[in-house]
Structure formats: C-alpha cells, structure tokens
Simulated scan of single mutants.
Amino acid sequence: MCGRFTFQPSDNEEINRIYQLAVDNGYEPKTGEVFPTDQTAIVRSGKGQVQVVTMKWGFPGFKSGQNIINARSETIMQKPMFSESFLNRRCVYPTTGFFEWSADKVKHRFNYGSDPDTLYIAGCYKVFDGEAHSVLLTTAPNESMIKIHDRMPLILQKNQIKAWIYDQKFAIDFLQSAMPKLKSEPLSN
C-alpha cells in the first residue's frame, strides 16, 4: 500500500536541494515522516522544466473524511477517479524511503540501502476545490518486498523523472516495469 514515507532534507543532499526549490517557490513541505493528507514536496511539470511544489497527499474519497492515497498501476487507466489525472498530470514524490507494516505489525523501512538515499515514487494529481491533491502509484511487489506486503510503490530512477512527467507513452509503458531491489530494515516501535 505505502501509507507513509520520509522526506529528510537534513540527511540527504539531493533531497535538501529539492526542499530548497520548494521553499524558494514559496512552499513549506512536510519533513521527516510524511503521513497521508500532509503537504508533501512534489515534482511536476512547469513552464519548460519541472518544478517543485507541495500538494496534499491523497484524493478526497467517496465518503466524508475519506482519503485515497494510492492508485494501482495495473488498473489506473480504467478507474475514472485516476485515469484522466494519470494521462494528463503525472508527478513524482521525492523521498528518502518508505514504510510498510508486516502481518505481525512490525514497521519496516525500505530504501536501496541503509542510508536515506533518494527514492522517487511515481504519482499523479488533480485539483479539488482549488487545491491540488496527489496520489502515488503502487504495483505488484518484487522479491525484496513480497514477504512484508502485497503492494509496493512504483519507483522511478532520477533519469526517468522528466519522461514520466512529460511523455505519456513512456508513462503507460512504465506501468509494467520491474521494480528495483530494495533493502528492508525492521524498526522498533
């Protein structure tokens, strides 16, 4: 599912640059552990180049107070709630890792290694009542994730960000991509 991630500018030079771009553009992204509904740093299309903004994480749901934070990559183009956003307004979540909980309720941190490396998650966004909201995309888990959870984020490499945002064919094709091997680190609660 991917219900939380980290955005730690103090621990990662690349994330610090992204954070500064957001601040320079007049935004204040949530740092540390990011929860659904937080204003999170997002990379999206801008005038001639990508830009960093903040958006509320999650689309309003069908019931009052409901917040939909993820969209399945396998069905995103068939779901009316997400298809138009995916085709026209893709974005990227810059993170320093994400969390999942195992069946025995142990919290696990995922990243490429033990350090808070930059991990980019594919997403899309839509404007509701004048405010931009985003969802991140999930996919089937690979071998590094399957023992902990039955879904994982759709992860982009840095050199794929512009293609994801601007190239619809690339984005559609990328929905079927194999995900990178990640390291799981159990955390004490």
Rank of each mutant, 00 (worst) to 15 (best):
C2V: 12
G3H: 05
R4W: 02
T6F: 02
T6W: 05
S10D: 12
D11Q: 14
D11F: 10
D11I: 00
E13I: 07
N16R: 10
R17Q: 01
R17K: 13
I18N: 02
Q20D: 03
D24E: 14
G26H: 11
P29F: 03
P29H: 05
T31K: 15
T31C: 08
T31M: 04
E33G: 02
P36F: 06
D38Y: 05
Q39R: 15
V43L: 15
R44F: 01
S45E: 15
K47R: 14
G48T: 10
V50L: 13
V50W: 08
Q51T: 10
T54I: 05
T54H: 07
K56V: 09
W57C: 01
P60W: 09
F62S: 06
F62E: 12
K63T: 00
G65C: 02
Q66S: 14
N67I: 12
I68R: 11
A71H: 15
S73L: 03
S73Y: 09
T75I: 12
T75W: 15
I76P: 07
Q78A: 09
Q78G: 13
K79C: 00
K79I: 06
M81A: 14
F82D: 04
E84R: 14
F86G: 00
N88T: 14
N88K: 15
N88S: 10
R90N: 03
C91H: 01
Y93M: 06
T96Q: 00
T96G: 01
T96Y: 03
F98S: 01
W101I: 00
S102F: 04
K105I: 01
V106Y: 05
V106C: 07
R109M: 09
N111T: 06
D115I: 06
D115K: 15
D115E: 15
D115C: 03
P116T: 06
P116H: 12
D117V: 06
T118E: 15
L119W: 12
L119E: 06
I121F: 03
G123P: 11
Y125G: 04
F128S: 07
G130Q: 04
A132G: 01
A132Y: 15
S134Y: 11
L136V: 09
L137I: 12
T138W: 14
T139K: 11
P141S: 02
P141N: 00
S144R: 08
I146L: 05
K147D: 14
I148C: 08
H149K: 11
H149E: 05
D150K: 13
D150R: 09
R151T: 04
R151V: 08
R151C: 08
M152K: 07
L154C: 14
I161A: 04
K162T: 11
A163H: 10
W164F: 11
Q168T: 13
A171T: 03
F174K: 09
F174Q: 04
F174P: 00
S177W: 03
A178G: 02
L182D: 04
K183F: 03
K183S: 02
S188A: 06
S188R: 13
S188V: 08
N189Y: 09
